[in-house]
């Protein structure tokens, strides 16, 4: 069953057509990679899923409901979480607090004033957060202020913040961008290990990452999906080779 259904999505910035009749169908429980050269419209497409951009025409259906025109926090509350290209975390707060906040969003909803009880009295929230921190390997550093973390750790923290919500769909925008080979391998390992039942959409440049993770690959070039299929098919597709793999990435 398709959990995310993208139909004929167009988006133009002035004269530039960033997305041109994009169609995409993401199967539940799979890892779906979106690849393509720089400027192909990958991030634009992702931004259309989370309410940051609204397509000019077309539809984006998540679990049978349209995601267009509703606010980012409402989209998250329906079960879509996002990891950003540059980690967006709460830099002034400790790692544990960083992960407890999304857990609160999951349990208490988009807005609830509980100003009298202490954070400590919500043991279940702390348990949820600690469990995820153990999974991603940040548990020992849980009281560290997150601004002091390395880039790789910040990314892992952001992933923990998404995983703690147990989203139905996890969007990862270049999860290994700017990482060392070791950090990249750790991230791939982490993604294979945790949240295996969660449907994921990964935008990625690193072919090694894509081919180790993806069940399905869509290739985007100049705002259009030029190919889609299993990793093996994509590898052999001449159109893809021409548009993308034929370059320095081969």
């Amino acid at each position: 069953m398709a959990i995310l259904e993208v139909n004929d999505v167009n988006k133009a910035f002035g004269g530039l057509k960033a997305l041109n009749a994009v169609n995409l169908s993401v199967e539940e429980g799979t890892v779906h990679a979106i690849i393509g050269p720089n400027g192909a419209g990958k991030s634009t497409l992702l931004n259309c899923f989370v309410g940051r951009l609204i397509p000019d025409t077309g539809s984006v259906m998540f679990n049978g409901k349209s995601l267009l025109g509703i606010k980012p926090h409402e989209i998250n509350q329906t079960g879509v979480a996002r990891v950003f290209q540059t980690p967006e975390i709460f830099t002034d707060l400790s790692i544990l607090e960083n992960v407890m906040i999304p857990a609160f969003a999951k349990l208490d909803g988009a807005f609830r004033i509980n100003a009298w009880k202490t954070v400590g009295s919500r043991g279940e929230v702390r348990d949820m957060a600690e469990k995820v921190l153990v999974e991603v390997g940040l548990h020992e550093k849980r009281d560290v202020i997150s601004s002091s973390l390395s880039r790789g750790d910040k990314r892992r923290l952001e992933m923990a913040m998404c995983l703690v919500q147990e989203p139905k769909l996890l969007l990862l925008d270049e999860p290994t961008a700017g990482m060392s080979r070791a950090d990249t391998n750790n991230t791939v390992d982490l993604l294979q290990r945790v949240g295996t039942h969660i449907t994921k959409i990964v935008i990625e440049h690193d072919m090694h990452v894509v081919f180790s993770l993806a069940d399905h690959i869509s290739v985007l070039a100049q705002g259009t999906v030029i190919a889609g299929g299993k990793p093996a098919d994509i590898k052999g597709n001449p159109k893809v080779q021409e548009a993308y793999l034929g370059g320095s990435h081969a």
Binding site: V50, E88, I89, P102, A110, M161
Partner: peptide, 9 residues
């Protein structure tokens, strides 16, 4: 920004 994408209004 993170708050919004974390599901908070």
């Amino acid at each position: 920004v993170r708050m919004n994408y974390t599901g908070f209004n």
